[in-house]
């Protein structure tokens, strides 16, 4: 079983439910009985171990998130940002963001980037997982090498792809020219920039899909394939009749997790195109960064508003993922 499922399982059965045997619920225990005191003191010990991380969560998760909401409902300027006395403006920033000419393109680009990335990552990852399921010489080593793109710092991958896709000196255009296709302005033309960053992102995400789907394949009994072989099924039929249906729960989890993490992607797009040219590869996350940090005149309010829209979308898919995972763990 995967760790994700393990953690899912452990959170699906909150530790509180598994009450220690000393104080079974419904059994009347005297307020001051030694058992009751023991349970209470063990609760103190447990929370003492948790206290640092809870304080940490409050300070470094809750406060930044609160600050973000605060930024989005006030009219901040650089000056009031420092002094902290910006006037309350309610949902003004959100209205501004909705009416911004960048809003719908950013939504569309985010959707395109996420869906196309997932479609290809998942399909290629599935094909590779099935391929690696055939144990062959070097299969372990090669599978480990497939992880490399995913472990590299994103700045490394993004700058390498930038140079490979360079219009004049990039290797990709050089190959295209050799085949007589002619060169494409991958990163500098509005029609191709979004596709270029999506290609780079697919490359980075394939290992993740490969690895989860491969572990899913390990849980399918080999007997099923053997029985299918005896019945004369070919490889294609085995995939569609056995592998695909049995992998459906794992696939759903992979795709939902992929959605959440692809929505977050910022580095690759920012480093390769800065969301340009002319906002043609701007997504919600690069737009938020652009508004807040990308220019000399920061607009923190709208930036935070865009960020909060992004977080709502991410959390919807995130909750779906957790629901799926728990259903899986309960089986």
């Amino acid at each position: 079983m995967t760790i994700t499922q393990k953690t899912g399982a452990s959170s699906a059965h909150p530790a509180g439910e598994a009450t220690p045997p000393v104080a079974s619920p419904g059994f009347p225990v005297d307020e001051n009985s030694p058992q009751r005191r023991k349970v209470r003191s063990s609760q103190w010990v447990a929370w003492a171990f948790l206290a640092p991380v809870v304080i940490y969560l409050a300070l470094f998760y809750v406060v930044p998130l609160y600050k973000n909401i605060d930024l989005s409902i006030r009219d901040y300027t650089v000056r009031s940002f420092v002094q902290g006395n910006a006037p309350f403006t309610g949902l003004d920033n959100y209205v501004k963001v909705f009416n911004d000419p960048t809003f719908w393109p950013a939504i569309f680009h985010t959707g395109f980037f996420v869906l196309v990335s997932i479609l290809f990552q998942f399909t290629i990852g599935m094909a590779l997982a099935v391929f690696f399921y055939n144990k062959f010489r070097l299969s372990g080593t090669l599978r480990a090498l497939f992880l490399v793109p995913w472990l590299l710092p994103l700045i490394v991958s993004a700058s390498t792809w930038s140079w490979m896709l360079n219009s004049d000196s990039g290797i990709v255009n050089s190959v295209l020219q050799a085949f007589g296709i002619g060169s494409i302005n991958w990163l500098t033309s509005p029609g191709w920039a979004l596709i270029s960053v999506t290609i780079a992102n697919i490359w980075i995400g394939i290992p993740f899909n490969l690895v989860i789907l491969y572990s899913g394949l390990q849980n399918i009994s080999a007997d099923l394939y053997e029985a299918a072989s005896l019945d004369g099924a070919n490889a294609w039929q085995k995939f569609w009749r056995i592998t695909f249906p049995l992998l459906r729960p794992v696939s759903a989890i992979t795709i939902l997790l992929g959605l959440v993490y692809t929505l977050k992607v910022f580095d690759i797009i920012w480093i390769m195109t800065k969301g340009g040219p002319a906002n043609s590869s701007t997504t919600l996350s690069t737009w938020s960064y652009q508004l807040g940090f990308g220019s000399t005149l920061p607009r923190f309010g709208p930036a935070a508003a865009v960020g909060n829209i992004l977080i709502i979308v991410a959390l919807i898919f995130g909750l779906l993922y957790i629901l799926m995972q728990r259903r899986e763990a309960r089986r």
């Binding site: 930044p64 973000n68 959440v260 977050k264 910022f266 960020g307 909060n308 977080i311 959390l315 957790i322």
Partner: peptide, 20 residues
Amino acid sequence: LISQMIPGIIMAMGFYAIYL
């Protein structure tokens, strides 16, 4: 589990305001 899903840009903006 949920906190792993928060986009980095949102954390960055919040931290920026606090650190400033």
